[in-house]
C-alpha cells in the first residue's frame, strides 16, 4: 500500500468550471507563485493553517477556554472548532493518502461518464507534489476517468514528464509574458513557465486549455494581453479562458491575517474586447 501523502485544502465535487463536464476538483495546498491577486490565499503555504473568520466571531472566548495547548503554536486538535457556536474557525488543509483521495473522486464516476467530465487537480500548485500526483493520476486513468491538471507551470520539466502519460488535459495559466511584469505580480520569473508550455505544446499529446486571469492595473496595461496572444501563436491549444478578477477571496485574507491587495474593479466590457484578440 502506498503511504505517500498530500496536503489538500478542498475537494470540490460537482464543479462545472474546471474543465469539461461535471468534475471533482482537488485543491492541493502549497504554491511557488505569490500572485498579488490570488483568490485562494489559503492555497499558498504547504502546511495546515487555522482560519478565523472575524465577521462570524462574537468574541465569546469559548475557543480559548477549551484550548489545551500551552506551547503557543497550534497543534490542530480541532477542539476550538467543535466548541465554536458560530462556525468562525476552520482548519485549512488535511493530509490524504492516494487511496483516500481516489475514494472521493470515484464517488461521482457515474456523473463523469454521463457528462464527459472527470477529475481536475488544482491548487495551489498540484505539480509541486508530483509523486503523489503521478500516483493518483495513474489510479484515475486505470479507472477510466478523464484527468485534468490545472497548473501555473513553474516546475521542472521532469515533473511534467512524470504525469504526461496519465494526463488528458492541462489547464495552463498564463499571467503575463513580459518577464518583469510577471515578477512584479507573482514574485517569480516566467521563463520556466513559458518554456514548459512550449515543450508541452510541441511534445505532449494532452489537450491544452490556456487560462488568463484579467487583473486590472496588472495585465490590462501596455498591451500585455496582446503580447500573450502573440506568444500563443506558436502554441497548440484547444481554447482560451479569460478569468475576470474578483474579490470573493477577501474574507479569507482576513481569516488568515494576510494583507489583501485591493485591485480596482474590472470593467466588464474589457473581457469582451479581449476575446476578440484571440
Amino acid at each position: 500500500m502506498n503511504k505517500i501523502k498530500a496536503t489538500i485544502f478542498e475537494i470540490q465535487r460537482n464543479s462545472y468550471v474546471d474543465g469539461p463536464g461535471i468534475r471533482t476538483t482537488i485543491f492541493f495546498k502549497g504554491c511557488n507563485l505569490k500572485c498579488k491577486w490570488c483568490h485562494n490565499p489559503e492555497s499558498q503555504v504547504f502546511s495546515r493553517q487555522m482560519m478565523h473568520y472575524k465577521t462570524k466571531c462574537t468574541g465569546c472566548g469559548q475557543c480559548r477556554q477549551i484550548c489545551q495547548n500551552t506551547s503557543g503554536s497550534c497543534v490542530f486538535c480541532g477542539q476550538c472548532i467543535i466548541q465554536c457556536p458560530n462556525e468562525a474557525r476552520q482548519i485549512c488543509g488535511k493530509e490524504y493518502t492516494v487511496q483516500e483521495v481516489f475514494e472521493q473522486i470515484i464517488k461521482d464516476k457515474i456523473f463523469y461518464e454521463a457528462s464527459g467530465g472527470g477529475v481536475t487537480f488544482s491548487g495551489g500548485e498540484c505539480m509541486l507534489q508530483a509523486d503523489f500526483l503521478e500516483e493518483i493520476l495513474k489510479m484515475c486513468k486505470e479507472a477510466g476517468i478523464h484527468t485534468a491538471v490545472d497548473t501555473a507551470g513553474n516546475v521542472p520539466w521532469e515533473s511534467f514528464e512524470k504525469i504526461l502519460p496519465y494526463t488528458d488535459m492541462f489547464l495552463y495559466d498564463i499571467k503575463a509574458v513580459s518577464e518583469n511584469l510577471h515578477i512584479e505580480g507573482t514574485s517569480v520569473s516566467n521563463k520556466t513557465i513559458l518554456s514548459n508550455l512550449k515543450q508541452l505544446s510541441d511534445n505532449g499529446k494532452a489537450e491544452i486549455v490556456i487560462r488568463i486571469p484579467i487583473i486590472p492595473d496588472f495585465n490590462t496595461h501596455t498591451g500585455e494581453i496582446r503580447k500573450i496572444a502573440d506568444f500563443l501563436q506558436g502554441i497548440r491549444y484547444k481554447n482560451i479562458e479569460l478569468l475576470p478578477y474578483h474579490k470573493m477571496g477577501q474574507y479569507k485574507y482576513e481569516a488568515l491575517n494576510m494583507h489583501f491587495n485591493n485591485y480596482p474593479d474590472l470593467d466588464k466590457g474589457i473581457i469582451e474586447s479581449y476575446k476578440k484578440i484571440f
Binding site: 462545472y16 468550471v17 469539461p20 463536464g21 457515474i110 454521463a114 457528462s115 467530465g117
Partner: peptide, 22 residues
C-alpha cells in the same frame, strides 16, 4: 451565476442522465 457557462448545460444534462441511471 453558477450555471451561466456553456459547460453547465452539458453538466446539467449529465446530472439528469446520472439521476436516471441511479
Amino acid at each position: 451565476s453558477s450555471i451561466d457557462n456553456d459547460n453547465a448545460i452539458t453538466a446539467i444534462a449529465g446530472l439528469i442522465k446520472g439521476f436516471v441511471l441511479l
